[in-house]
Design a binder for these strands. Structure first.
Lengths: 115, 115
DNA sequence: CAGTATCCTCACAGATACTG
DNA sequence: CAGTATCTGTGAGGATACTG
């Protein structure tokens, strides 16, 4: 049994899911394997609303998975996000997830491509 | 862009998360790497309520990840669950997730053991 | 033993508008 | 450009009691 910030996780699997679970965190993280500006990230994740994207970025920054760097002092701002050393330890997991999705899509009749 | 049952997934990562995302699915699946009776599963996943466990099992059966087998015709019932061939393709992903959680717990000061 | 049935709540996520 | 503010809805998940 593990505990972070007074929340409990019964096993190592549930611990990992607290970092990358939810609908979008893994998706955002995989896009941040390469450092990226906020606007680029938004373009690549059009289906995620700005509010959700922004909240997730803050959470993952607080979790120590990513860093946020501001390069200007006045608007227009230039901000980029990248994985921390800790965040980078997730890369093999994220790649396994992405790969399974790809392989599954190719071999499962219930899944179709659109657009 | 992928589609299943009229729901859309923008990338292979989000597709995988639709199968193993949420708070408990990966946890349940990892316990089912070995075939197990319902009561065993319940004991090992005490923190998951019966309702949630039951609903997730049904969903994952509908998704083709697990099979449910009934071995008796009258109560008391004997039921066991196991991964399908399709479900088994997830094992490497599940193990990567569990392993990351384990390694992280050992090396992160914010995470503590309890009980 | 292996679940359902109800009821409930609250975090997640969407839509839209606004700002340093 | 890179967000925040507000308002709102849905559904995942929890608590408790009951059943074939």
């Amino acid at each position: 049994m593990y505990s972070i910030d007074n929340k409990q996780y019964p096993c190592s699997t549930s611990l990992t899911m607290r970092y990358i679970g939810g609908k979008w965190k893994a998706v955002i993280l995989i896009h941040l394997i390469e450092k990226k500006r906020y606007s680029e990230l938004r373009k690549e994740c059009k289906v995620i609303t700005e509010r959700t994207l922004s909240l997730h970025l803050k959470e993952m920054e607080a979790d120590g998975l990513i860093t946020r760097t501001v390069h200007t002092s006045k608007p227009p701002l230039k901000v980029d996000y990248e994985l921390t050393q800790f965040g980078k330890t997730l890369i093999p997991v994220l790649k396994a997830i992405a790969e399974w999705g790809k392989d599954t899509a190719e071999n499962n009749d219930r899944i179709s491509f659109v657009k």
